[in-house]
């Protein structure tokens, strides 16, 4: 069995564009996603399911916040830090946002260099992405420690509605887990790139199939998704 589904290149040329392409692709035999490999399509479908999980968390948060009769703690004050004598609201969260966006930028460039078969730059950019990700998780651990010391628990907190703690730990904890898994994923793929697995057609340890450079883009999809989720958490949980 071939490792890669044969790309119907000739077909791509004659395909219609726009809305006609939608109908043509979906009504075609066997393969609806013509430009995307099965790996990429499956990652997108996984990310779609993950979207629903995070949506459920954020909607639960919305529901408890809207329905509580106790005032909601002001995130701007809860997450404020005192740096050099001045009290800066939300500063740690802002830095975390910039760190995660930077990691997305380095990842996007890693994908670009991967398609140019530039092993060195791809590896370095992926390692930089992983380092940004690890920094993010570290800052989140700091934030959790600070809040736990201040008495925030999933069932109570000193400032107001008790649901604040459960929403906070659940949403940021689940996101942090995603970042951690992403860092591990990045390191594994970066090692494969560095070793030249995709040029030498080396078979994978787990799948015993030949890897392709496209895995860098698929890893990138996951990583950008983690950043994407943070955009929503930042807006809806921290700024709202």
């Amino acid at each position: 069995m071939p490792d890669i589904a044969p790309a119907d290149t000739q077909d791509t040329v004659t395909q219609p564009g726009g809305w006609r392409s939608l109908v043509a692709d979906w009504s075609s035999d066997q393969r609806a996603f013509r430009s995307a490999s099965w790996g990429k399509a499956m990652m997108w479908i996984f990310l779609l399911s993950d979207t629903f999980i995070f949506s459920c968390f954020l909607i639960s948060y919305m529901t408890v916040r809207m329905s509580t009769v106790v005032p909601w703690p002001n995130p701007s004050e809860v997450f404020a830090l005192e740096i050099g004598g001045t009290n800066l609201p939300l500063i740690l969260i802002a830095i975390m946002t910039f760190v995660l966006i930077s990691s997305s930028g380095t990842m996007a460039m890693a994908v670009n260099f991967a398609y140019r078969r530039d092993r060195m730059r791809t590896t370095l950019l992926m390692l930089a992405t992983a380092a940004f990700g690890a920094t993010f998780v570290g800052m989140q651990a700091f934030e959790w420690t600070k809040l736990i010391h201040e008495g925030v628990r999933p069932w109570e907190n000193p400032w107001g509605a008790p649901q604040f703690g459960s929403a906070f730990f659940m949403i940021t904890g689940f996101h942090g887990t995603h970042v951690t898994i992403g860092v591990i994923f990045l390191l594994i793929i970066a090692r494969k790139v560095w070793r030249g697995d995709f040029d030498q057609q080396r078979k994978g340890f787990f799948t015993s199939r030949k890897g392709r450079w496209e895995i860098v883009e698929i890893t990138g999809l996951y990583w950008h998704f983690v950043d994407l989720v943070w955009v929503f958490i930042f807006a809806l949980f921290y700024l709202w």
Binding site: G18, W19, S21, L22, D25, W26, A32, F33, R34, S35, A36, A41, W44, I45, L47, L48
Partner: peptide
């Protein structure tokens, strides 16, 4: 990406 994937996702 093609519209078929964009719509599906």
């Amino acid at each position: 990406e093609r519209l078929a994937l964009a719509c599906a996702i």
